[in-house]
Amino acid sequence: MQSTGVLEAKKKRADSSKPLLMKGPAKKMKRHWQLYLLILLPLAYIIIFKYIPMYGAQIAFRDFSPVRGFTGSEWVGLKNFSDFFNSPNFWILIKNTLIISLYSLAVGFPAPIILALALNEIRSMRFKKVVQMVTFAPYFISTVVMVSMIILFLSPRLGFVDLIVRMLGMESINFMGIPSYFSSIFVLSNVWQGIGYGAVIYLAALAGVNSELYEAAKVDGASRFQKVINIDIPGIMPAAIILLILNVGQIMNVGFEKIYLMQNPLNTSTSEVISTYVYKIGLLGANFSFSAAVDLFNSVINLILLLSVNYFARRVSDSSLW
């Protein structure tokens, strides 16, 4: 009798749990409607501004006319891509874009890591906060103001850099007018503006490192350099790999606004990149189809690089985007 009562009680509990297990998606959404409402706005933003505009990518395959619209314009296939590949500007744009992008990656990627590792070793909290404030402050300067500062600092006879050059007994140098200096000015100013913000990410990763590892290293007599090599760097490696994948995925997108503002007729030979070329040809020249083809080619290259680097990172480490 007792075992029968236990079986009946278990059967009742199973029956009472069936409605919870058999709830459909609609009932689950009704139960957690606050969470779905929370993601509704960012989901709508992604759909409206990211997916719907993909319909306009067909401009690259048409002889687009605003009067005839998307479907009314003549379909020309890969003609716009062929015109770009055969144009005399193709290799110049690719070379300038790659030089600035790889230069930025080689200098700009390790700089925040080095700063974060150095700040992590500072024992004086007051000095550490001062350094963080000084390095983080340029991040809030707008691009227009930043370019104005760069032009003013490097201006012949007016900038303090030229003043230092003349104090050293050398002649004035028009830094912004020498094509070979453009990539260095662009990259180093980017590092100055973004190194503090990038270091914050790695400092957050260092804060998550198990403190017992430092205690064990101290017991073993490890030096500060050995702690950095064996504890700090492995601790920030997952975050560094993710950021490296994202940076490589944007390697063909040097950026438009800053480069365009820094351009002048004297440095165009090294400062003309794909993004500025698309703006000049597409908007200023009203050649929408050709500029769309150039931009689509640029996006496809970025996608291939992103997939390749993510695949390689997944094969050699435990960190990847997916």
Rank of each mutant, 00 (worst) to 15 (best):
F160P: 08
A239W: 09
S155G: 06
N120E: 13
S317F: 05
Q132W: 07
I94S: 01
Y103P: 04
L115G: 03
K27Y: 08
L206S: 07
T276I: 00
I259G: 01
L41D: 07
Q34Y: 15
Y197V: 00
I114Y: 06
S223R: 01
V161A: 05
P42C: 10
P179R: 02
N210H: 13
P179F: 02
V134I: 13
G77T: 10
L7R: 14
G169F: 07
F288A: 04
N264A: 00
L37S: 14
K11C: 05
R224T: 11
I52Y: 13
L244F: 12
K50D: 07
L105K: 02
T276Y: 07
S319F: 13
I236C: 01
T270A: 00
Q250D: 15
F256N: 01
P265E: 05
V76D: 09
L261A: 02
K79I: 03
S271K: 05
G69D: 11
A9E: 12
G221S: 11
V294W: 12
I122C: 12
L206D: 07
K227V: 10
L244N: 04
G159H: 09
G285P: 00
N80M: 03
I251T: 04
F136P: 01
R166C: 00
V294T: 06
S73Y: 01
D15M: 04
Y279E: 11
P156Q: 08
A292L: 04
K30H: 10
W33Y: 12
L7E: 08
K227E: 15
T97G: 07
V278M: 02
I94R: 01
L261N: 02
I245N: 06
N80E: 08
M1W: 14
K218T: 08
K10V: 11
V300S: 04
W322H: 02
W322A: 09
L93Y: 11
L102R: 09
